[in-house]
Design a binder for these strands. Structure first.
Length: 293
DNA sequence: CGTTACCTGAAA
DNA sequence: TTTCAGGTAACG
């Protein structure tokens, strides 16, 4: 659920509250073991307790808490979190009433705590010693950074026959996009979700690149989309759900042209699109790279 | 490549 | 009661 703009909002909320603080205690609640994806909780606890939290980071949909040995200042790896569908990370006083579905808690040295809550237990906590290697193996270019060039986008898509939407959801192509922002970006770029990824013409690639950046920036400006579970680092809702152009607006009129927004399943995911604003690729079938003439 | 599994609660 | 969900890994 939380996509790049949601995770970035959480990062910005939490950074001033936790960076530089020392981890006093790590607690795992019922259902929390699953979140540790197999790592024994005693091991995770031993890696966290006593460490200082460095500058809070983010890569794609992952939050990164660098762990620093307080005395020497030596890096001791990072705690890498993924919120998946229903996870949230909230900063509260340590004695605040327990959250429902709280799976793990990181108590800090100022009487506050980071509470990880997750109804479905899909979220993950991992201790990663070399985050650069870890991320380079699983994630594509990071949008909203210099790395996300038009060339980087196209080299991830070229030659692919799969639906453009599926290719954009694949985190190894582009990091951070999920179902909401892919549908929104495709609308802005006027591209149908099913168009073969590798079939884009140069002007279409450029429009897509621009649309991805625009929609992610807008999501961050609005502090994320709270259609259901998402909450920011203070436990509050974002407002991007009020600004979406197509996502979950099935059967409603398009604000741009008045046509009825449609829903279909692409790559197994609900997809929302405007039949007149997104004409590109509605009938395009094959990658044309080998076609002559 | 598409489908299924992982979980649980809310909405239909 | 059934379906659906903002994600991803593991299937066949």
């Amino acid at each position: 659920m939380p996509e790049l703009p949601e995770v970035e909002t959480v990062r910005r909320d939490l950074a001033p509250l936790v960076s530089g603080r020392r981890i006093q205690r790590f607690i795992v609640f019922e259902g929390g073991e699953r979140v540790l994806v197999g790592a024994p909780k005693d091991y995770v606890r031993s890696r966290l307790e006593g460490m200082q939290i460095g500058e809070l980071g983010r890569r794609g949909k992952y939050l990164v808490l660098p762990l620093v040995e307080a005395r020497s200042g030596a890096g001791e790896g990072s705690l890498v979190l993924h919120l998946r569908m229903t996870g949230s990370l909230k900063h509260r006083r340590a004695d605040h009433e327990a959250d429902r579905f709280e799976r793990a808690r990181i108590e800090l040295d100022d009487g506050t705590a980071l509470r990880f809550c997750d109804v479905r237990k899909f979220g993950t906590f991992e201790i990663i010693d070399d985050v650069d290697t870890y991320f380079s193996e699983k994630l594509g270019a990071e949008p909203l950074t210099a790395a996300f060039t038009l060339d980087a986008l196209w080299s991830a898509l070229r030659g692919r026959q799969s639906a453009l939407k599926s290719a954009l959801l694949d985190q190894s192509n582009v990091a951070g996009l999920g179902n909401i922002y892919v549908d929104e970006a495709l609308f802005l770029a006027r591209l149908h979700p099913s168009v073969p990824a590798g079939s884009l013409r140069p002007a279409e690639r450029a429009a897509l690149h621009e649309a991805i950046e625009q929609t992610l920036r807008e999501g961050i400006e609005h502090r994320g989309a709270s259609f259901r579970d998402y909450r920011d680092g203070k436990g509050e809702e974002g407002s991007q759900q009020f600004f979406v152009r197509v996502f979950r607006r099935t059967d409603q009129p398009c604000d741009t042209c008045g046509s009825t927004i449609r829903r279909s399943v692409v790559g197994g995911r609900s997809s929302h699109w405007c039949p007149s604003c997104q004409p590109v690729g509605q009938t395009r079938r094959k990658v044309n790279s080998s076609r002559r003439g």
